[in-house]
């Protein structure tokens, strides 16, 4: 995965909290994805402007105690988003 690329979400996907779970869903498609708190934060940071490496840098800066894990977590989530056609890399 090229971490210099930006994550761009397909139009229409929304993130909402329901029953203490964070869900990414589309109003007309059956695709949905469940995120934990970290996933939700990564979702927010991937605004189409920041590259993946910038997202990782922000998280490492704010959560230095988790820094060894952060890059893997970000990559894993983005891989899931790509697999489900919720996002593309540009």
């Amino acid at each position: 995965m090229d971490i210099q690329k930006k994550v761009v979400f397909e139009p229409g996907y929304l993130l909402e909290k329901i029953d203490d779970e964070i869900t990414v869903y589309h109003p007309t498609l059956a695709t949905s994805l469940y995120l934990n708190e970290t996933g939700a934060l990564i979702w927010e940071l991937c605004d189409g402007e920041r590259s993946i490496s910038e997202v990782i840098d922000i998280l490492v800066e704010n959560y230095p105690e988790n820094s060894p894990q952060i890059a893997d977590d970000v990559r894993a989530l983005i891989r899931r988003l790509l697999e489900k056609n919720i996002a593309v890399l540009r």
């Binding site: 929304l14 909402e16 329901i18 029953d19 779970e21 869900t23 869903y25 589309h26 109003p27 007309t28 059956a30 949905s32 469940y34």
Partner: peptide, 9 residues
Amino acid sequence: RMLQSLYLR
């Protein structure tokens, strides 16, 4: 999760 998703949609 299916039900949640349908409800949100």
